[in-house]
C-alpha cells in the first residue's frame, strides 16, 4: 500500500505503533486543555459560591434561546464529525469531505449565533468596561459577565481553531490521503472537536440555566 508507506514516519516501527502514539498524544493534549479551562471554571465556582444572588440575577440577562440553539448546533456537529471519522475508517474519502464540510458549516453557524448574542450584550451595555450599565440588585454582575465573556470567548477561539483544523482535514481527504489503514489525522481532529463540544456542554448550564424559573 503506497499511501500507507508514505504515512509511516521513519522513527516508528509500525503504523500501529504510530497510530497508538498519536492517539495517546491527543488524549494527553486534551488533558492539558481541561487544565487550561480549569482556571476559569475554578473562578466561576468561587464567585458563584460567593456572589450567589448577583449571579442569579445577572444570568437572567443572557439569552437562553441563543444558548439552547447553540448547544443543539454543537451536539449535532459532533454527530456529523463522528460520522466523518466513521467514513474515514471505511476509507471513503468523498464522504469524509462531505461530513467535515457539514461540521464546519455547523461550527460557522455556532459562531454566527454567538456573534449575534455578543451584539445583543453590546447593545444592552452588558460588556464589562467603561460602558457597562450596572445592575442595581446585582452589584457583582460585572464579574459574572467578565467570566461569561472569558469562558465563551476562549471556547470561541477553540471553535475557530477547530474550523481551521477541519478545513485542513477536508482538503487532505479531497486529495484522497486517507484509507482504511491510515486515517489518524481525521480521528484526532474528531477528538478535538468533541472536546470543544464537551466544554460547551458544561458552559450551557453554568451560564444560561442558573435561574430561569422566575
Amino acid at each position: 500500500m503506497p499511501e500507507t508507506k508514505r504515512a509511516l514516519a521513519e522513527h516508528f516501527e509500525t503504523l500501529e505503533q504510530q497510530h497508538q502514539a498519536a492517539w495517546l498524544g491527543m488524549w494527553t493534549f486534551l488533558a492539558t486543555e481541561i487544565m487550561f479551562f480549569s482556571g476559569l471554571f475554578m473562578g466561576y465556582i468561587i464567585y458563584r459560591h460567593t456572589y450567589f444572588q448577583s449571579f442569579e440575577i445577572a444570568s437572567r440577562h443572557t439569552n437562553i434561546i441563543y444558548g439552547t440553539v447553540n448547544t443543539a448546533i454543537l451536539l449535532t456537529s459532533s454527530l456529523t464529525m463522528a460520522l466523518g471519522v466513521h467514513a474515514a475508517q471505511e476509507g471513503r474519502n468523498k464522504a469524509v469531505v462531505r461530513y467535515i464540510l457539514i461540521t464546519i458549516l455547523f461550527a460557522a453557524a455556532f459562531m454566527v449565533v454567538k456573534g449575534a448574542e455578543y451584539y445583543e450584550h453590546f447593545k444592552n451595555h452588558e460588556i464589562p468596561g467603561q460602558a457597562f450599565h450596572p445592575i442595581p440588585q446585582a452589584p457583582q454582575a460585572v464579574i459574572f459577565f467578565y467570566l461569561y465573556f472569558a469562558m465563551t470567548g476562549l471556547h470561541a477561539v477553540h471553535v475557530m481553531v477547530g474550523i481551521g483544523v477541519l478545513s485542513v482535514m477536508a482538503w487532505l481527504a479531497a486529495r484522497q490521503r486517507f484509507d482504511r489503514v491510515y486515517n489518524t489525522p481525521v480521528e484526532l481532529a474528531g477528538l478535538y472537536w468533541h472536546f470543544v463540544d464537551i466544554v460547551w456542554i458544561f458552559l450551557y448550564p453554568l451560564i444560561y440555566l442558573i435561574d430561569r424559573h422566575t
Binding site: T28, A31, T32, E33, M35, F36, F37, S38, G39, L40
Partner: peptide, 10 residues
Amino acid sequence: VLATPVLAIT
C-alpha cells in the same frame, strides 16, 4: 502536562 496549562490560563 497537567500543571503548566493552569499557569497559562492564570
